[in-house]
Design a protein around this nucleic acid. Structure first.
Lengths: 212, 212
DNA sequence: CCTCCATGTGACTGGTCAGTCATATGATTA
DNA sequence: TAATCATATGACTGACCAGTCACATGGAGG
């Protein structure tokens, strides 16, 4: 997934610092608001630049939005990539580590997290598909690791891998949705999060006595 | 949970038919749009009534919205209530039945489903809390039934009931989010949904050989 | 018939928005 | 200096919005 050249050349001719500032302020706007409710006028006001300038950098609101979403995903991906290869011997440690890293990423980059959450909640399914198509979502790592865990006997063969991914992903998103709003209280929820992870684990583990 | 008298008396003096029509059109608007993006102007146009009339019925946009959300929840609750008591001997049958009924309800009332989804995705957490406070969410039934299932040995005592509820609820919402958009293809997804339910089940069941 | 009152009305206010475009600025090149 | 070109500007357009209010309507009671 590369952030392709959506913006106009003019944007890339900008001094690095200004370019970053534009991206940052736009992110904040799209974090606080859905695509539809975000306001270009607010963005340019905050940046103290003319509205017209923004239209030198980007074709329109949607073009700016795509750039913002892709930038966020690029950074998140870079952040999480290493986790998949750190715990390759224990699948449950891996899952736990991945949840925790996602959580941690969201903690450290609440603006990014909100942008992504808004992206997924967007009313405009068509645009979402359009952006995802360009991005090429990949969860290959999960299936790779799941297969290896099954081979190791750490996960029951009884499972449908797609269903496992689904449960894993649904719980991850719900955890983030529910507890990330309340800041600075992670440790308070720590125990509960562990219980949830444990529940998921019990769903994946083979049982000694029966079945398998 | 009762739908309290949010609207003005004028609204309740309306002939039943017109009152229903107003509610229905408003629901459709709040199904297609988040609270912020919904438009009173569009609603009154569709109803062929004057804007001012709407302000005879409701204090403002928010007042109308509260009424719509509460109406939807009231109906959904009535629909789902019986399920809890039909399968009281088998917890997994119960869960499956409840998922299926929720699903079915969403299928039969896609507008209601969208209203609720938008409600949960709303940017305005404060208003959501305000509405929920008036509504008094209850999942007492789940915990009752879970306790009984544990007593019967059908669910492992190893579980934290709150965590079980969380996983159950997260998966339910995600299932609805993901598959309800694509209409008329329920049966195609049937198998996948079963796999997901099975995964959850494995997470709750006690194992014969080890632990418990 | 007239009065009264609940109800209905829609033009209007003041606000927000995305997007446009004629014009200005300022740097580089001839 | 003059010409050229990339970039910056912000007033303006047309559209939409929530909410208001002076006035219209129409039925019930005197």
């Amino acid at each position: 997934m590369e952030v392709v050249l959506l913006p106009q050349q003019t944007f890339f001719n900008l001094p690095e610092e200004k370019r970053q500032k534009v991206l940052q302020v736009a992110m904040e706007e799209f974090a606080r608001n859905t695509y539809e409710n975000a306001s270009l006028s607010r963005i340019v006001n905050k940046l103290n630049i003319a509205k017209g300038s923004m239209y030198q950098y980007f074709l329109d609101k949607k073009d700016l939005y795509k750039y913002v979403v892709q930038s966020v995903y690029k950074q998140k991906r870079q952040y999480l990539q290493p986790v998949w290869y750190k715990h390759s011997q224990d699948f449950y440690q891996l899952l736990s580590a991945y949840y925790r890293s996602s959580w941690q990423y969201a903690q450290e980059h609440p603006v990014h997290h909100r942008v992504i959450a808004n992206f997924w909640n967007s009313r405009d399914a068509e645009m979402r598909q359009e952006i995802l198509r360009e991005k090429k979502m990949r969860n290959i790592e999960f299936f790779d690791q799941l297969e290896q865990a099954m081979a190791r006997g750490q996960v029951t063969r009884e499972l449908n891998p797609e269903a496992a991914w689904f449960v894993y992903h649904a719980v991850g998103r719900a955890l983030a949705d529910n507890f990330l709003e309340v800041p600075a209280e992670v440790s308070q929820h720590e125990e509960f999060i562990n219980s949830v992870l444990h529940t998921v684990r019990l769903g994946l583990e083979p049982r000694k006595g029966n079945i398998q």
